[in-house]
């Protein structure tokens, strides 16, 4: 539970004192903008834009000569190997603010947004330095990760002539609860379990496990009353017509028609591909089944459309009936 009442008021009063503060630390490029670091960046990014590496093409371009990739802006001032030690500059007001959050239970931190503006592209020989201001701290928010506060910082980059060349705004969420590494996660709030994400598995129990066993064999079963022959889906233990508890099943042809459908955009659950089409399909045997319609533009799905089921692996482990439009 987040702090509340007087304690929260006092905490938020302390936060207010940080808004508008320069963090007190100036970062500067340890080397002038140079071809070696540009090449290393372009190789890592697979960026073959000739304006970064080929002086002949660059001179003939709108840029008039070699320039540095704009997204490198922050790279020129980062600390390099020393960062691995993870030591804080005691004068750094931003670190001090984070420690204040930590002390009040908001130990989690996650970067949520960055915004960069580039006034000009840097050229070899330029140097840059940046000063950072704590621009704003949000009111307390309920987020997917928990209760917390968003901190906005803005760094302004200037060159050797004291002219502004660009800026970087950065938004982080300090939230209550587990330590999550910066940049690790935004919306999902999840860590990363081993392996690629899989679909949600069905829960198996006495009345439905047999159905999934048949699916494993590549057939689409429909439960049938062994007494009066009436079909039923989803499976249940008793026939609603004659109350018999004896049953067997038939194998559906998988031919069907769309009764209704939806196109899911939100929320995006790992293991599924969006937009995701899910339809209620009436099988030719008369029973209905809910499943995905695949290999079709969502805009082309329509009520009444003829579809054919096939049993397929939808991830590494799960077999499921999926439907494809039947071309007529």
């Amino acid at each position: 539970m987040a702090i509340s009442g007087k304690e929260r008021e006092a905490f938020e009063k302390k936060l207010e004192a940080y808004v508008g503060l320069d963090i007190g630390v100036e970062d500067h490029s340890r080397n002038p903008i140079n071809a070696a670091m540009i090449r290393q960046w372009c190789e890592a990014m697979g960026d073959e834009n000739p304006i970064y590496l080929d002086s002949e093409v660059a001179s003939g371009s709108a840029h008039g000569g070699i320039v540095a990739p704009p997204a490198m802006l922050q790279a020129w001032i980062l600390g390099g190997v020393a960062m691995a030690a993870g030591e804080d500059d005691p004068a750094d007001k931003q670190r001090e603010l984070h420690r204040l959050f930590d002390a009040h239970g908001f130990t989690g931190v996650v970067a949520t947004n960055t915004e960069q503006e580039y006034l000009r592209y840097l050229q070899p020989g330029d140097t840059v330095r940046a000063r950072t201001v704590i621009e704003s701290i949000s009111e307390q928010k309920a987020t997917g990760l928990g209760i917390g506060y968003f901190i906005n910082t803005r760094s302004v980059f200037k060159d050797q002539n004291d002219d502004e060349v660009g800026s970087l705004t950065f938004r982080v969420l300090k939230f209550e609860g587990a330590e999550v590494p910066a940049e690790a996660s935004g919306d999902s709030g999840e860590g990363s379990p081993a392996g690629p994400p899989q679909r949600i598995k069905p829960a198996l129990a006495h009345d439905n496990a047999w159905w999934w066993d048949v699916i494993e064999t590549g057939e689409l079963p429909i439960q049938r009353c062994a007494e009066c022959g009436v079909l039923r889906h989803p499976p249940r233990p008793m026939c609603g017509e004659c109350q018999s508890t004896d049953w067997d099943f038939i194998r559906s042809t998988g031919e069907g028609e769309v009764v209704s459908f939806v196109v899911i955009h939100y929320p995006e659950v790992p293991g599924y591909t969006y937009p995701l089409v899910v339809a209620v399909v009436e099988l030719s045997e008369g029973e209905r089944f809910v499943g995905n319609v695949v290999d079709v533009d969502p805009g082309d799905v329509s009520i009444g459309m003829a579809v054919q089921a096939s049993i397929e692996l939808v991830d590494d482990e799960l077999k499921l009936p999926v439907f494809r439009p039947v071309s007529v």
């Binding site: 704009p70 970067a111 947004n113 580039y118 935004g186 919306d187």
Partner: peptide, 12 residues
Amino acid sequence: RVTHLSVKLGTP
């Protein structure tokens, strides 16, 4: 020439 780049961060 790129002048602005803005992203919202999501899954790692």
